[in-house]
Design a protein around this nucleic acid. Structure first.
Lengths: 251, 251
DNA sequence: CGATTCGTTGACATGCTTCAAACTTCGTGG
DNA sequence: CCACGAAGTTTGAAGCATGTCAACGAATCG
């Protein structure tokens, strides 16, 4: 299957959109020139650099090609709320306020590159259902987060978080059992609505239970089944689909 | 301003889309016949009736014309998670899974009517930015909920919830100070991630503080300023915009 | 009119936050 | 290369907000 990617369409075609059924540029951008020009106009951001900030003009959305980043917003009292973490292939920057301003900020957690999809160049192909499909992914992620925050305790949130990451890494061809956390404990807490101390303590306890091994930012999941059991419900989704596959994999 | 609505376009044109700058049917549907046919094909749902259910085929999204409804999903263990409440003019049903299936359910809280927007009839006008603008509203609501669940205590959540409702009623021409809660305490708790008892207790306490008067489902807000102060931060948005206006109103 | 659902209130248990302190890692400049 | 300070991580102890359990009253429905 992987060998059937039509590599003649784009000279430097990447593979991040494969799970989506092919390059998003081909799916959403009309003219060949727009695709060539825009999809490959990648922008490199180093750790801590912003792709965009809340309040800026928003004339495009993005696909992450490599690296990882977080989306967040800042409350009046200066506190940060992390809305999500993005891995290669993820679409981000879809949330724009009424007047086409950024509603959130996106910052690189490590060196990263992105594809730009200017709204102005979204052609006939980007009509209705096509575009809705993309935005629905984001909504699903949001709903999943709401579900965690509203219904799960610290253990469930951390377990969900790790399981989700594992699945997403796995679906991208990386190990689902051992990976590096590119975000800080602070970020994790900010995402899950928990104090940093709670995150740390929970991870330590999971390690003591033999569910995983954690050292600083290195995580190795030893007992996927237990982790998933603790994680509990998730929104039925692409992610779940991938997880069921992952459950069948040798892990 | 209200008198400038071009009533000749649609024989039974409603006013729910006014804050959005006019009938969404005119903005998103191409052919006149599609608009006539689809935008006015309203469907009546009585209290407890579903507009759609999780898992069903999703070939359209909706605009609520009258009444109110809630969007929710059900977890594996049968628990419900309310994702949002919708008032006339709100767009809902945009969240569809990969294969065009409903990711959530929508049920009427009282007698309601809706406009259908079939994906298949979204014309050239529904390209890119136009559609993104609509979906961004939903994302903003979601982010606001995430912010509440992750950062605010019970008082803040209830205050935010009431303030939000007040603003939305106000922007629709109703009183921002006195309104009826169309949802149960159960629903409110399910939405805000709180136990029913906590919702009840918090409302009682607010009443004792003189911030509001509450009797069963009737709410009267006596001290908007205090309420908003307790509510704390909100995602900068259409809603906030409306709230600032509301703050200037006699209320 | 009885049954069921909804809302309120009280007492108690607990999971998480907060505060505090120690240790580690990282970056920067001497 | 080492020294220093800042930031990130871990662990402990104590306080408190919220969940849970239980009971009761009020409203709604058949």
């Amino acid at each position: 299957m992987l060998t059937q990617v039509p590599s003649h369409h784009l000279p430097h075609e990447c593979h991040v959109c494969e799970p989506r059924g092919g390059c998003l540029g081909l799916q959403l951008l009309d003219s060949e020139e727009a695709r060539q020009q825009l999809c490959h106009a990648k922008k490199i951001s180093r750790k801590g650099e912003h792709v965009f900030r809340e309040g800026e003009d928003a004339d495009c959305f993005y696909v992450l090609r490599s690296g990882s980043l977080k989306s967040y917003l800042v409350t009046e009292d200066g506190e940060e709320q992390v809305l999500g973490f993005y891995l290669p292939g993820d679409v981000f920057g879809l949330d724009t306020a009424d007047s086409q301003l950024r509603m959130s900020s996106a910052v690189a957690l490590e060196t990263a590159s992105v594809c730009r999809f200017p709204h102005a160049y979204l052609g006939d192909k980007a009509q209705g259902a096509n575009l809705l499909k993309i935005t629905a992914e984001q909504m699903q992620r949001d709903h999943n987060l709401v579900l965690m925050l509203a219904r799960k305790d610290a253990d469930g949130r951390i377990a969900s978080f790790l399981d989700d990451l594992a699945c997403r890494y796995w679906s991208r061809g990386y190990s689902a059992s051992a990976f590096l956390l590119t975000m800080s404990r602070q970020d994790i807490g900010c995402y899950l609505g928990l104090a940093v101390e709670t995150v740390s303590r929970t991870l330590t306890r999971f390690q003591e239970c033999g569910v995983l091994k954690v050292n600083r930012r290195e995580v190795e999941i030893l007992d996927h089944a237990s982790l998933r059991k603790m994680a509990g419900t998730r929104v039925n989704s692409i992610a779940v689909e991938c997880c069921q596959k992952a459950a069948l994999s040798p892990s």
